[in-house]
Nucleic acid binder design. Structure first.
Lengths: 265, 265
DNA sequence: CGCTGAATTGATAGAATTCAAGTTCTGTGG
DNA sequence: CCACAGAACTTGAATTCTATCAATTCAGCG
């Protein structure tokens, strides 16, 4: 296991360009008196993030410890077996969590977008690879700081627990999908979930923007890229949806798609 | 969703016989002064359970709130969508956690044995069906009591968090298995995991006792019962293992099986 | 000793993967 | 703005698996 880790880390060292957006002030030791001076001031994900329950003075303390970081498309935030020093809150963009088999087969277990937390660890090591599906901004929170918050800001702790339980719930449902659903049901479920997540709703029609490519969808649903393609085509010919462009799906009959997702005929 | 719940609960009402092992003393209000009088006194799972870190006086308090409950083969401890009032620690036997699709397809997400915790909830409702694979004893812990312990017995809280993280880790790996592994890899992984769990180890040979039937294995691995059977037969003919009886697998070459589990030819 | 449910085995059909083109999309540079 | 190259996606044909359906064997039990 460790050998595998070493091998993978070294083989990735070249591409591992670490781009960080440091806080605005010149001198990083000049602690901001309020969040209006730090990256939290303009955080678009604040409402959905684990810091949403914090009071003003707590928020200031929180802001002192975090850094935002831009992760460009395809770059990794962290890798499986790497020592876990941070958890991350996704600010914008999208992250894929993936696990690999030795021969390269890949399973994506989750896509995480604004407000969601990544960085779950086991015994101090990350459990998955976390990579940016598209240009993504994450908020980097030192685990040490979290330990401190544990007593001072219980809302952080409970928000985190909540996120972990959400993830469990999500994974359970993904297990049914992977183990028991047909390709049509898988694609339908995936699109319905996206539609609900984005919620760009107009009655029974929904426009779903896909940040990820067919390959990621395939590795998420346990299919090949060809089957993903064929299945989307099939749904298009059935009249359930349209595909204006590769990264855009127009669901024409959401209810129908929901039924397909649950395997009704 | 609620309709589904009602339907399922009523259809199961008949078989839902709730067998409880009340504490030994006649009067349940007579609180035991020490655990020597309660069910915790003889608990065989104590070392692995969430209560293992408790001090004597904490243990006494803990013991006051719990009840043990015998769940016979096939009976359920709780069901998906049911209001979550307890978490359970498995004392002996084995529990399967399962989720169903409307048409009856089933995915088992986990088998839980002594020391493990079940009862994860989302917004107050259980996330899965929990059923006894064989005659099983569980320790029933009111969630209300847990909330109280939160402050008084932090070791419980941290042990619980640990269990939840373990479950996440387990589910992630199960996702790879379901989405990307072949039947042989699935069966091999399953048996290797069992071998590690039970650890009845004698060098490269291990005897694995299976509490569950082929159907449960199939629904756990996302296969049909026939494929499970054929795959085990194939492994037997390859010389990797023997099958002395339906519920017993003798792994003759654990290393080989481990390689098969990871997909090495 | 026969009964019942579980497991295995066999034959077949269906479905998804694989392999192989072909097509469309996207971003870049002229 | 267009042409071009590479990547991403779609489509087609063949193959390989796995699920399905059906029959048989096996094991535990009254």
């Amino acid at each position: 296991m460790l050998k595998t880790l070493d091998t993978r880390i070294s083989s990735l060292a070249k591409s591992e360009v670490d781009i960080r957006l440091e806080p605005l002030e010149k001198n990083p030791k000049a602690k901001p008196k309020s969040i209006s001076e730090g990256p939290c001031a303009t955080c678009s994900a604040h409402n959905q993030a684990i810091c949403s329950g914090l009071k003003d003075h707590e928020m200031a303390e929180f802001a002192r410890n975090i850094r935002t970081r831009l992760v460009k498309t395809g770059q990794s935030v962290y890798r499986e077996f790497e020592e876990a020093k941070y958890v991350y809150s996704v600010v914008s963009g999208e992250i894929r969590l993936a696990n690999l088999l030795d021969d390269g087969r890949r399973q994506i277990t989750s896509f995480k977008s604004a407000g969601e937390v990544i960085g779950e660890q086991k015994k101090g090591y990350y459990q998955s690879d976390a990579e940016a599906v598209c240009d993504t901004v994450v908020c980097q929170i030192p685990i040490k700081a979290l330990d401190k918050y544990h007593k001072e800001m219980p809302s952080i702790q409970s928000a985190l627990s909540e996120k972990v339980l959400d993830e469990l719930h999500e994974l359970r449902h993904h297990a049914i999908l992977l183990g028991r659903k047909t390709p049509i049901e898988k694609i339908a479920t995936f699109l319905v979930d996206r539609a609900r997540k984005i919620g760009d709703d107009t009655g029974n029609k929904v426009e779903v923007k896909l940040t990820m490519g067919r390959n990621d969808i395939a590795d998420f649903l346990g299919l090949t890229i060809e089957t993903v393609s064929r299945t989307i085509t099939k749904l298009r010919k059935m009249g359930v949806l349209d595909v204006p462009s590769n990264h855009l799906i127009l669901i024409k009959d959401l209810e129908w798609l929901e039924n397909l997702a649950e395997g009704e005929k």
